[in-house]
């Protein structure tokens, strides 16, 4: 990753919208980190896991791939990493074809798998050093030490992996994936079954990786995680990409904001004088619900409150509610099934 990218990260806080794009200028001549075109995958069992997937991951961004179980997240990752065969379509990593230039692309990619698959009898140090060699890099104890320290594994370096807790094993898998200094890192459900502390650590780590220019693609079904970390979000369902959007843009476009006013005195219908506002009366007549325009900016809350006051309507409480990514996600997935 070059300096320009780094500079782009450090330039300031993300703007709204497609913040992922800030990692890669629109006119950039550099190829995207990952480019997936027309990829379909049908397993021998006849199950079609992916249907003509098109997806571009920009360099230096954190991309979250959301989707329910069985949506095709792991299959897609497996194809890019070379674990599953690519039969149909094309995948480029940093501009290199994963079939033709497989040596180049695989050396640039790191994978933290979903399953806690570890060599039980090996020590942490050996297994992480093994990974570096496997990916074609000469031994570099200083780098391995740094990775282990960053992941709080240094004290455990001489322990057999089977003696470690589940969370520690997860760290070992991350250390293995980072041992060869990948430019693109796939994290498949990195925080599944992981305690709060480790999850926070993981988020910190991912951010620090991005600062170094590493592109991170993570799959998750914890919406919270995507909301916390991702620049852009892709939703996959039933083997199809349902949408790809910058996180803020997604929230703005699909996120609803509602203002609920709990009335002092119940009413049976919305007064005529308030007709110009998009107000709805709750079923019990005790609350008025006002849905703000989806970008949240054109709504004239002041005018509404003024009109309410003029109409002599008093309310005892009010609260606003903004849909979370989770709500958006559930809506999206439900619509398509």
């Amino acid at each position: 990753m070059d300096r320009n990218h780094l500079a782009a990260f450090q330039a300031g806080p993300p703007q709204t919208g497609e913040s992922g794009a800030r990692a890669q200028a629109p006119g950039s001549t550099e190829p995207p980190a990952v480019s997936i075109q027309g990829v379909s995958k049908t397993y021998d069992t006849g199950f079609q896991a992916l249907r003509s997937i098109n997806l571009t991951i920009h360099r230096g961004e954190i991309f979250a791939l959301l989707g329910p179980n069985g949506a095709g997240k792991t299959t897609l990752i497996s194809i890019v990493c070379g674990i599953a065969m690519l039969a149909e379509g094309q995948v480029l990593v940093n501009g290199h074809d994963i079939r033709r230039d497989w040596r180049k692309t695989r050396a640039q990619v790191g994978l933290v798998p979903q399953e806690l698959s570890t060599d039980s009898f090996e020590t942490v140090w050996r297994t992480v050093s093994f990974s570096r060699g496997l990916f074609g890099k000469p031994a570099n104890p200083a780098h391995i030490e740094k990775v282990l320290r960053d992941l709080s594994l240094w004290d455990k370096r001489n322990h057999q992996i089977q003696t470690l807790s589940g969370g520690m094993k997860r760290r070992v898998l991350i250390a293995k994936a980072l041992a060869h200094e990948p430019e693109v890192l796939f994290l498949d459900e990195p925080t599944a079954g992981v305690d709060v502390e480790l999850r926070r650590d993981m988020w910190t780590l991912v951010r620090s990786l991005r600062e170094k220019g590493v592109t991170v693609i993570l799959t998750t079904h914890y919406i919270e995680e995507a909301e916390e970390m991702a620049d852009r979000i892709g939703v996959i369902n039933g083997g199809e990409i349902v949408l790809v959007e910058g996180k803020e843009a997604l929230m703005r476009k699909l996120g609803r904001k509602q203002l609920t006013l709990h009335l002092h005195t119940p009413m049976d219908r919305v007064p005529e004088t308030l007709a110009r506002h998009a107000l709805e009366l709750s079923e019990d007549g005790e609350a008025l619900v006002y849905t703000l325009a989806q970008d949240g900016e054109t709504a004239d809350v002041t005018a509404l409150l003024q009109d309410l006051a003029d109409a002599g309507i008093r309310f005892r409480d009010l609260h606003t509610q903004q849909s979370t990514l989770e709500d958006i996600f559930v809506d999206l997935v439900r619509d398509r099934t």
């Binding site: 990493c81 070379g82 040596r103 496997l134 990916f135």
Partner: peptide, 14 residues
């Protein structure tokens, strides 16, 4: 059996 084969399959090894 243990699943660690993923690493060999994803590595730049012929």
């Amino acid at each position: 059996f243990s699943g660690t084969i993923y690493e060999v399959l994803s590595a730049p090894v012929s």
